[in-house]
Structures are given as structure tokens and as C-alpha cells.
Design a protein around this nucleic acid. Sequence first.
DNA 1: TAAAAGTGCGAAAACGTTTAAGAAGCAGCA
DNA 2: TGCTGCTTCTTAAACGTTTTCGCACTTTTA
Lengths: 337, 337
Amino acid sequence: MVSMKDISAACGVSVATVSKALNDHGDIGEATKQRVRQMAKEMGYFPNSAAKALKTNRTYNLGVLFEEEDHSGLTHDYFASVLDSLKSTAEEKGYDITFVNGCRTRPNRMSYLEHCKYRGFDGVVLVCVNFYDAEVMELVRSDIPTVTIDHLFNNVCAIMSDNIKGIHDLLHYVYDKGHRRIAYIHGVDSSVTQKRLASFYKTAAELGVDIPDEYIRTAAYRDTKGAYVETEKLLDLKKPPTCIFYPDDFACYGGMNAIRERGLQVPDDISVVGFDGIRIARHLEPKLTTLKQDTKQLGMRAAEKIINLIENPKITLIEQILVEGQVCAGNSVAEIS
Amino acid sequence: MVSMKDISAACGVSVATVSKALNDHGDIGEATKQRVRQMAKEMGYFPNSAAKALKTNRTYNLGVLFEEEDHSGLTHDYFASVLDSLKSTAEEKGYDITFVNGCRTRPNRMSYLEHCKYRGFDGVVLVCVNFYDAEVMELVRSDIPTVTIDHLFNNVCAIMSDNIKGIHDLLHYVYDKGHRRIAYIHGVDSSVTQKRLASFYKTAAELGVDIPDEYIRTAAYRDTKGAYVETEKLLDLKKPPTCIFYPDDFACYGGMNAIRERGLQVPDDISVVGFDGIRIARHLEPKLTTLKQDTKQLGMRAAEKIINLIENPKITLIEQILVEGQVCAGNSVAEIS
DNA sequence: TAAAAGTGCGAAAACGTTTAAGAAGCAGCA
DNA sequence: TGCTGCTTCTTAAACGTTTTCGCACTTTTA
């Protein structure tokens, strides 16, 4: 590896001069600066990030904490899309992405925070984690700039998909199609779930739609089996719903299986709506009516926010940024009268 | 951050002694070693990776090149699964994962190789890239240990899903179900595609199955539209196939749409098989018959191989590791007589 | 008993940068 | 002439490690 020393030797100037020339410090003559830069290019010089980091305490490296108990993280459509967008945006701005080590089985392992300090991440983005984990809390409370996605901590920037508006819009859509008996199989407890559920109740109330208790059920996210079981229970009711909301698109397909096994048709006999807007849903029949979360925007805003927080710590607002999704109308919701 | 200097002060020994005690060098007395380690723990010491890297030229950081023209990389089920497994395995072995910066629009950007040297990756794994890219070639030919997934370069370790056996097994499965008119809509040209296609022809020949030219068609991977169009063409043939192979599961759903729009049923009127074994395929009706690639194994072997290459450069074989998949029998292939 | 070998530790240089402080040269000015 | 101030460059220290070498002491060997 060619270092600054090599360039300084080749140019007959000191190493300090080389450093300043390359970093555009003011006190270097134009001629020297050009000469140094030219030589650096010719010799194929690139800085050594470790040395730079050691000296400046800046790595231009972002940590991403991306971990779920069931390890579906990276294969989770929604989160993977967010991460993809986060990555692109960060890279455009000159930052690299490193995963915060999630291995919890190593002897002598570091905590998340320790790992972040060890690697010297300039900031870290938390996606798809258990936000109530003690180590996660320790991390967000540390002095490392932090952005969370889809979870709100005190005094931490959050980029949130607007679940409230999402459910609101979906419910309005379904209401407008004439549905009045609407069930919601919601995900397991989390802040996202709570928001969706609250929005569901509130919107229903606004619309004057009565939601019997037995219409509200629980299944894990992406749990086709759970959705299947809960769907069966809904169908067994004396007054079954005409439309069922699911935790997400994936689970929705589990529900549809239960429906079909009863010899019923979607949407003719019963309507369904998902959440997320996974890619495949646009290619299956019936096309799923769902709320497409704006993953591109979410990842982008998260990257921008964390970089802002790093580069302008004073003037960057600690705020909650809401990103709206969009009702993606398919044909899984029937018009009824 | 507490550094070795702090520990050395607290223990009344030199920094060198601290370093040796923590790194288990031989020439430190047991008592001192324990005292230092104890103190390090108490003070919450963790090493500084940048300083360590600067001195040792080892980062315990693996680069992952993960980039596709259409940016579907991270949202691509197959590759995301491989990456997930790669990540877990690497983390267990004490390595972190950083993405090789794929941003090609930045002014003054570094090439892949430059970026890898800049970050000091101990090794890099190439997944899901255009292997014919000049920069990719430059990278694999460099002195940085490299492992590719699903592509074979000269003198580079490769972890490959056994596409040849995969297609072989699938075709045998379909043959055993009685099919003799079998079409293959294969993916666009790549080494993987070539292997699959060759295996298709070879296995068909072995089985004595004649494959007319018009049964062999092309559609991009994960291109539902393309698969749709090509499926229509197949259905328009005088002697349409009784079974169609698709580039992958995703594309297969595009093909099934074409089939259904003709009022035909899968598998009663025509059978289909996919490739990959994406998760959702197990939850949709008909359950897709497909070849489930062993992504867990692929990622794991890749991580193990690259780490071996890094830690034991002399004795590690440059080899091509084949990972077998498994026919995942659904009910998208009918038994015919 | 003296030399050799072994043990436990420290001093100092080095990795490749950045940066504060200072020096040299020169112009302008009283 | 001597002072000031500016521009351009250098010196040297520092970041937190690792590692070579050497020193002092102890134990073994001849």
C-alpha cells in the first residue's frame, strides 16, 4: 500500500504537506497542492481508514443493528427493503455499512454498545430489533448518535412508517367498498402493533363501525399458521366478518388458505387486506389489497438523519419522522352493498 | 474510552505488559496476567479496532460485495438468505460484515478493490454481482482472499449451489410423474443459467426425453412478466408441454398467471416447477414443486472458507464447493399416464 | 562457583494519519 | 533598518495498539 510517506518522498515535501494538500487545508500553495494530488493519483494512493479513524475518531462507517429472535431479519421483505435503501443512501454520502454483531453465543462477547465503540461507528441505525432488550436500551442511551426505525424512544430520532394513517386509509378504503363487519387479526404486541390497533379502533369509531371483541384477534407477524387458525375462528362466528385485516401480507396468505379450504372465495365470499406491500403480492391472484409502506423513503430518511446527526450534532433536531405509505388496491376486497 | 494506558497505570505495569497479558503472550507471569485481565474487565476495557488494525493489518472485518443492476439484491430471497447465514457464521467466528461500497455515482469514488484496501478487509465474499464487471475481476485477481458464490473463477474459491444436480433431480422427479413433454423457460445468460440448461439437456437425453427447440425459452430471473409472455408462447404451441420449468419460483408465479388466464389449472391441466424454494411458496396453493437451494449451507460454507483462507492461507485449498439442494415436492406437478 | 538458560517485564519503535505550533521567506510599511 | 503580517511549508507529537529487543533476576547446569 502506498502511503503518504511515499508521496511525500516522491514530491519532495513533508508528510504533513501531503496530508493538507489532499484534505484541502488552506495553508498549502496551489502549485504544491496540485503536484501532490497529481502524484497521489499516479501512484494509486488511497488513505488507510484505520489510521484515519485512529487519529480523527471518525470512521465514516455506520453500524446497523438488524436482528430478530427468529432470524428472519434479512429475509424479511419489509426490513430488507429498508436496509437496501439505507445502504444506497449512506453509500452515496460516503458512509459504509457494517452490521452490529448480533452473535449472542460467543464467550466473551461484547455488548452491542461495546461492539459499536470497538468498531468506532460514527452512528448506528436500529432496524428490526427487540427494542426492549437491555442492550438495545443501553445503546440508544449512549453518546453514539442513533436512529431507530419504527420505534420511538425518548430523545432518539425515529423514522417511522405511518401506521396510524396506514390503517386509517385502509379502513376507509374498505368502508367505502361497503364493508361494515371488519375483523382485525393484528400482530403480537409491539409499539407498531399498538399504533395499528389503536388506529383501527379509532377509525372504526369515526366511521361508526362497531367492532365486536371477537373480531379482534392476534397472530404473530409473518405467521401463516397463526393467521390460518385465527381466520378459522373468525369464520366459525355466528356473524363472521365480511373483511379481515391481517398483520401483514405474508400472514394474509395463511388466512386465505383457511378461507379457501372452507370452499369460500376471496373476494367474492370474504375480503382480505394485508399490510406491507411485498413484491410477490402484485403477481398473485387475487391481487392483494394492502398498505404499501414506503421502504425506499424510510431507508433514505434514516440514512440522512443519522448522517446529519453525526455531522451537525448541534443543529439537528431530535424528531420523529413519519413516512406515509399508500393503499395499494388489488382485488382482494369486494364491493358489497 | 479506556485504553491500555489506563490499565497499565492502574496496575502499575507497562503498556506492553498489558497488551501481552490480554493477548495471552507467553512471557507474562500468571499473577500479572490475571491482575491485568481483572482490571481490564473492571474498567470496562475494549480494544480499539482501528489501532489494532493499523498495527496488525488485520481487521476481522469481511467485505461483502452484494450488488445487482436492478438493486433487488437485498430483497432477493435467495441471496438474502445466503447473506443472513454468512453473517451469522462470520459473527460466530469473530468477524464482522461490511458491505463493499457499491455506489458508482460518486465523484472520486474508489473501485471495489480500492475500497477493500481502504477498509482493510481481511477477505471478501462476492454474492450476487455481475461477475464480468472489470472491477469485480480486478478484485478477485488481487491478493485479497476472495470467495465467490455461484460463480467459478480461475484460482478463486467458489461456493456453488449444485445447479446441475438440482435440475437433474427436478427433471427426474417430473419424469417419474410421467411427464415427457417438458419445457424450460430458463434465466438469462450467466454461468448458473448455463449449468442449469446443460444439465437439463443432458438429463433429458439420459432419460430419452426429446426436447424440441421451441420448448426452450428465456426470461429474466424474477421476471414475472417475461415468464408470463413465454408461457403464453408455450401454450400456443401445437403440442404444448405438460410441464414447464421456470427460472425461479418468483417468475413461476408469472407463468401460472398466464396459465390461469387461459382457464387452465395447475397442476391438472399443466404442471409447473420453480427453483429456489422461497418461503412463501410453501404457503400458497398449489404448493410449488421446486428445488430448495440450501442457503444456510451456502452462507455457512462461504464464511468458513473465507476465514480459513485468511487464517491458513498456505494450507487452504482453492476449490469449488458444491452444496446440494433438495427437491421440494409440492403439488404443482401432476401425475400423468 | 561461574556460566548458561530461562522467566518476567519494560523501553521504544512502528503502523499511517492529523494537527498544533513554529519557522522561513517575503512584502509592505514606518 | 526593523517591525508586522502573510503565505507556505516543516517539525513533532499524538491516536492506541503490537512487537522486537534488551535488561534484570532466578534457576539450572557444568
